[in-house]
Design a protein around this nucleic acid. Structure first.
Lengths: 232, 232
DNA sequence: AGATTTCTTCACAAAACTTTTAAGCTTTTT
DNA sequence: AAAAAGCTTAAAAGTTTTGTGAAGAAATCT
């Protein structure tokens, strides 16, 4: 791809300018904005080949822009996050994005990632996004989102709505650690986002009870200390 | 890279000469200037592979040179700052430098960083390498940031969060020395920045224990005396 | 409304992890 | 060769995270 069009949004002027400088040196066409509103307005008229978004913007979250973009477009997005923001929060919320970097970052590394994403995108552009399933089976455990049922070794599991959501989130992200923050976000949504209680732990306990799973040597829901829970 | 061309600008003659000495010993081609004007003049004619710039110069700030360079070039820049300029640490990085060191510094560490930057730069510039940003494999050692697992010769390694972060940082910077300060910054973030204890050393020991690695003849985590640790 | 189920909070115990401390060892410098 | 600086080790002390039981609040059902 020659002279890809790149959208850069960051309210810290120096950083935005710096990124622009580096990208321009690499012969990219840079469109730079210091706030989300202007960026969104521009996005209505034009479509970049890639976007670099800061998470913290004065008028809106970079996540919001990311979501808006994903509503109808599929080009790569790289998010910039502050170092002090908890890493779980980042991984939890950067799902719509294709990559992220923590500030302060090495400009050259950003360039490298921009190039990598552009390569990846042009390469797999044709490949469709993963289709979402309604039923997941994990060794004896069957969970169905459509009719909201769950069975374990053929026997039905009666789950409460919250329990079901948590288990669904874990199954959907099978093999990955899902942090408490992430679970909270998945189940309760962004507005109730606060993880300063052990609500999730209690639900996990109930889930494990109903699944006859122990906390020490669990068959399904495993505790990843200091990180979260996972099912493999 | 053989015989990289390196620009050194520092008005303190002893320091500039010292840096030149060390770099020359490493077979680099050094171009040394005691002020910014001469350096900029030289930059109009030639292009180095890397630059080491002092922040405090008699005629202009090192940042100015840095910015001038960044107007049309992308080679790595390492800034030298006085110890008391705490804020400049960040500003230096964000204004276009790729690394920085506070004076007084250990010459060996500067060399390590020069090498690291050169390696990184060539790495970034080499042909398309479809690398997985979340999973690194180093001869038998596999570390995955996404599912937070680590295996050594197929066998799972149970790591604590801190151990995991340290090992990740070392693997991510594979081949280059990571100083204790750098590790501290990577793992704990800037707010807890203080390296006047041997916390890291203890974690390194635990890591080596779990990896069945010895400190005398380590397979993975190697001690680079006076500088830090590295994995190759 | 009253009963039932579900969800959240709290306090405390247990487990796991991190940091500190201190002593011994190795490398580098003087 | 002695001194200084840096690294390793081990164990104790401190902290954080997770698990559990029980109780009260909120929602749902009858």
């Amino acid at each position: 791809m020659t002279e890809a069009k790149i959208l850069v949004v960051d309210d810290e002027k120096e950083i935005a300018d710096l990124i622009e400088l580096y990208l321009t040196n690499e012969a990219y066409e840079v469109h730079k904005f210091y706030n989300g509103t202007d960026a969104l307005a521009w996005l209505k008229e034009e479509t970049p080949d890639l976007a670099v978004l800061d998470v913290m913007l004065p008028d809106m979250s970079g996540f919001t822009i990311c979501q808006k973009i994903r509503e109808n477009q599929n080009f790569p997005i790289i998010m910039l996050t502050a170092k002090d923001e908890e890493i779980d929060k980042i991984t939890g919320l950067t799902l719509g994005a294709d990559d992220y970097m923590t500030k302060p970052f090495r400009p050259l590394e950003l360039i490298a990632r921009v190039k990598a994403q552009l390569r990846r995108f042009t390469k797999y552009n044709t490949a469709a996004k993963e289709e979402d399933q309604d039923c997941i089976t994990i060794s004896g455990l069957v969970i169905n989102r459509r009719d909201h049922t769950c069975t374990l070794d053929e026997k039905p599991l009666a789950l409460t709505p919250t329990e079901f959501s948590i288990l669904w989130s874990l199954c959907k992200n099978r093999g990955e650690v899902v942090s408490s923050d992430r679970l909270f976000y998945d189940v309760w949504g962004e507005k109730y986002y606060s993880s300063n209680n052990n609500t999730i732990m209690v639900h996990i306990r109930h889930l494990r009870e109903k699944m006859h799973d122990s906390s020490e040597k669990p068959r399904y829901i495993k505790t990843v200390w200091g990180v979260g829970y996972k099912i493999e």
